[in-house]
Design a protein around this nucleic acid. Structure first.
Lengths: 200, 200
DNA sequence: TAATTAACATACAGGCTGTATGTATGCAAG
DNA sequence: CTTGCATACATACAGCCTGTATGTTAATTA
């Protein structure tokens, strides 16, 4: 019979549990009150651990935020992969991907963390590093496909990727703040169909 | 002969000078080290005033930041107005406006304040309020003109304005961080020419 | 089983924010 | 011209927060 007072967990289990608790509590508070207005005492209280545990797992508060943002970004990528419908036409595929992105970004707090606080706390480079693992590459591939299909080798795809990505982000933020998504979907459709007119 | 020890300025002069000193010092430090890493003791030291003066003029640190952002935004609007070339064709006018915007945003620290820290510190609404006074309206008018000229009443201009504005901001940030502007200019040209093809 | 290390817990030093209170100067009324 | 009030600060303080240093307990390794 196991001792009930000391569950006798392995170090790894303890660590993973503590890390997860901290990230979860931080995610909640950062998204509700913002990074600057959330103190580490409040975070550890919510996570039911001590500040010692926090500073054992993360070098400082911003590293905890980075872990939160990374997890959030991965969740977005996963949600998009799950909800992505295979389309035979590139513009449709891009619009469908945008749709999935908007939906994933409506989870409360997510837009604030990834689109508002993230760039300020971690810097554009820090966020780019996080995004690299997840999103931007697939957008580039989609545009490449569309450019090939529409016979438009003249387009500067790298810059267009950046521009459209910024548009997606801004639209996601508006939608997450209560805006209507249909208008933005149509705007992207117009934009993409103008850029990549159907052949023949 | 005036007393040299007490310059005997009017209250209004004193106030305006102090405010200007605080905003200038805050602008410098916020743009160099970021909002969170800049303390009010450091700001007042740079401005050669006391913290009492700061909290007499501004309710808190974020209100000082708001004043900085507002001034910066007005400077951008003014720079664009001065450098705007009158174009007879809408797409050219839009590209020319983008060019002027990018140039104005290369002033050191400006992109960080208006595009990175601003949204996080003041919130999207706070920044939108500041931008309303300055930029977004003219972009909408430019797109309206272009849509009329190109016979495209189908386009959702409101959403397109938001999307393109986000693209301009992102490009401005990249350029301010050392990126090349020509690529983005060409990308916008492609995009706008696709959206608004020249008539006949 | 002894030694070592991981995983915290506790205590502390320094710094920062906002407020409360004190003071000197400008200003307006009589 | 002086008397009273308001403006524009200056100073002091309370509370909180961050990061570090040090202590303690339990798991892992030799």
């Amino acid at each position: 019979m196991q001792d009930q007072k000391t569950p006798r967990r392995s170090n790894r289990d303890r660590s993973e549990d503590t890390r997860a608790r901290l990230i979860s509590a931080a995610r909640k508070l950062f998204s509700e009150k913002g990074y600057g207005d959330t103190g580490t005492p409040e975070i550890v209280k919510e996570a039911e651990v001590t500040r010692g545990a926090l500073y054992h797992h993360f070098t400082d508060k911003s590293e905890l935020f980075r872990a939160v943002a990374l997890q959030e970004s991965r969740d977005v990528a996963q949600a998009i992969n799950q909800n992505s419908v295979h389309e035979s036409e590139p513009v449709r595929a891009l619009v469908s991907g945008a749709q999935a992105y908007f939906t994933a970004m409506t989870k409360p707090g997510r837009a604030r963390i990834l689109l508002l606080e993230g760039p300020a706390v971690l810097g554009p480079d820090g966020m780019a590093e996080i995004d690299r693992e997840t999103g931007s590459a697939s957008l580039y591939k989609g545009l490449e496909w569309a450019a090939r299909s529409a016979n438009r080798p003249d387009l500067p795809l790298g810059e267009l990727t950046t521009l459209l990505s910024a548009g997606f982000d801004r639209a996601a933020l508006e939608i997450a703040m209560g805006g209507e998504s249909t208008g933005y979907i149509r705007a992207f459709e117009s934009l993409l169909q103008s850029l990549f007119p159907a052949q023949k």
